[in-house]
């Protein structure tokens, strides 16, 4: 029985080892070797470079803000969806997931039309007399965040709905019967019980934003983030060594974020 299962696992494992594990090990390994000797020079170079640090900082900022906005926007929506009947729930979920099903190029171009100097948003605001001169939104970190929130909101909604629909509705009734208002029942019962979904959703959004390429490339203009910087090093400048170092840094940040989030989850919800 056990052996058979192992045999079934084998093709997948082989594939992952050959096309993922090995390349990663080679990429990461190569960053520590220069002229046949161990070195940290690549990293020292990057962390001493204010230009790179600024890109790194912007990336983290964009990812963090995107994650927070997704939480703030996604939480109430997810709660609303989770309390609907079966039929409505599937319909609303399908609608929520829709952005994920469109190509990110098309989605980003749509935002360019909306956010541009002569775009829909600026035209509307000027027509309403709210602003005189068109604002610079496109090709700024703000545009990236808008695009990324649009892209990743469905992820946090799906994960939160999954957790919230398993919360017994009687718990809210119990809280209310003990004197809690709707809002404090939400805050003291729903929110803490949603923490696992919130953590997973946040990891997905944060890591997704950190590594997203198309959206920041199209909406960010000259403003670089790590992924576009990596692409530039590898493809435009053909500097594969720097590209590997950047890739390793990105990976390290990703794992660090997951570790930190798990830590937070454990302290917030010891018995969850």
């Amino acid at each position: 029985m056990k052996k058979k299962v192992l045999v079934l696992l084998l093709p997948g494992l082989l594939f992952l080892t050959a096309f993922m594990l090995v390349p990663i090990v080679i990429t990461v390994g190569s960053t520590f070797v220069h002229d046949g000797a161990f070195t940290l020079e690549g990293y020292m170079h990057f962390f001493g470079d204010t230009f790179f640090l600024k890109i790194l900082f912007t990336t983290l900022e964009v990812s963090l803000v995107t994650t927070l906005m997704c939480i703030v926007l996604g939480f109430p929506v997810a709660y609303y969806i989770s309390r609907r009947g079966r039929r409505q729930k599937s319909l609303l979920l399908a609608l929520a997931i829709f952005p994920l099903l469109t190509s990110s190029v098309v989605r980003s171009f749509s935002w360019m039309i909306i956010l541009g100097k002569k775009g829909l948003l600026n035209n509307a605001l000027i027509a309403l007399g709210l602003i005189k001169e068109p604002m610079d939104i496109l090709y700024t970190p703000a545009a990236m965040m808008i695009g990324l929130v649009h892209l990743f909101l469905p992820l946090i909604i799906i994960t939160l709905v999954g957790v919230m629909e398993n919360i017994d509705p009687d718990l809210i009734k119990a809280a209310e019967s003990l004197g809690a208002s709707r809002f404090s029942a939400f805050r003291k019962v729903i929110v803490p019980l949603s923490v696992p979904g919130l953590i997973i959703g946040s990891i997905l959004v944060f890591v997704g934003s950190l590594t997203a390429y198309t959206t920041p490339a199209l909406l960010g203009g000259k403003q670089k983030v790590i992924s576009t910087f990596l692409y530039q090093n590898a493809i435009t400048l053909n500097d594969w060594y720097s590209a590997s170092v950047i890739a390793t840094i990105m990976m390290a940040i990703t794992f660090a974020v997951i570790a930190i989030m798990n830590k937070i989850a454990n302290t917030l919800n010891p018995k969850g």
Binding site: D168, L171, A174, K271
Partner: peptide
Amino acid sequence: IPVNKRNFGFVFQNYALFPH
């Protein structure tokens, strides 16, 4: 009068204890 202003104790069939 809304539930949370009634001061009644309710014991549920499935207990409805707060798991967290």
